[in-house]
């Protein structure tokens, strides 16, 4: 089993405005009791969505105009707070294939890499323009290219940034533990051979 390389993500986008969106908001703590990530997709931003509904508004995740979106557009320091991997898992399982934002919290970013969800950065003004663009024309398709480090939107090509080691991991398909273990089978076997209870297994 090898993992697919992740080179391109294209599709409609979902604008989610706000700086410092923390992981408690992305997936409230009561959903952490499960030992698998199944079914988390429907609970992403659950409390924010309920609060919006109570005010008679539609949260972007409930807005039918953005249904089926694959690229999430966020602002600064997205995913700060708890290290819960459930946060990127909930987004990915809800259909999001890439996140474009001004900046990301470190643990969120690492968790997103580990599950194959690229997060790329653009300057704040560019993000704000894209969010307005998508709010005005919800089905506009965006195209992210990790190979070229670009995002094509509204006929313009914008350069995006992503740490080089993360980009290489996506392009080579080495973005999670399974593929890495397979790639480095000898290392694992060497470790296993040193362990008294595995030797002679």
């Amino acid at each position: 089993m090898t993992l697919p390389a992740i080179c391109r993500v294209s599709g409609a986008a979902l604008p989610l405005r706000g700086d410092d969106v923390d992981t408690d908001r992305i997936i409230p703590a009561r959903f952490l009791v499960s030992i698998t990530f199944e079914g988390l997709g429907e609970h992403a931003f659950e409390d924010d969505r309920k609060a919006a509904k109570a005010k008679g508004k539609a949260h972007p995740f409930d807005d039918p105009r953005f249904a089926g979106a694959r690229i999430l557009l966020v602002n600064r320091n997205f995913g700060c707070g708890s290290s819960r991997e459930h946060a990127p898992q909930a987004l990915a399982r809800g259909g999001i294939k890439a996140v474009v934002g001004e900046s990301f919290s470190e643990i969120f970013f690492g968790n997103a890499v580990a599950i194959g969800l690229p997060c790329v950065a653009l300057p704040g003004e560019a993000i704000a323009r894209l969010q307005s663009l998508v709010e005005g024309a919800p089905k506009s398709a965006l195209a992210l290219d990790l190979e070229a480090r670009t995002l094509i939107a509204d006929g313009k090509t914008l350069p995006v940034s992503i740490p080089e080691n993360a980009r290489e991991a996506f392009l080579s398909g080495n973005w999670d533990g399974t593929s890495m273990l397979l790639e480095r089978f000898q290392d694992v076997e060497a470790v296993a051979a040193r362990l008294p209870y595995v030797a002679g297994f």
Binding site: S83, E85, I107, G110, V113, N165, D176, G177, M180, V191
Partner: peptide
């Protein structure tokens, strides 16, 4: 430093953390 569950599973396997800048 803090990491996610999937990253921790790979630490348990390898005894190292990969890709630390």
């Amino acid at each position: 430093f803090g990491i996610g569950a999937t990253e921790m599973a790979s630490v348990w396997a390898l005894g190292t953390v990969v890709n630390v800048e």
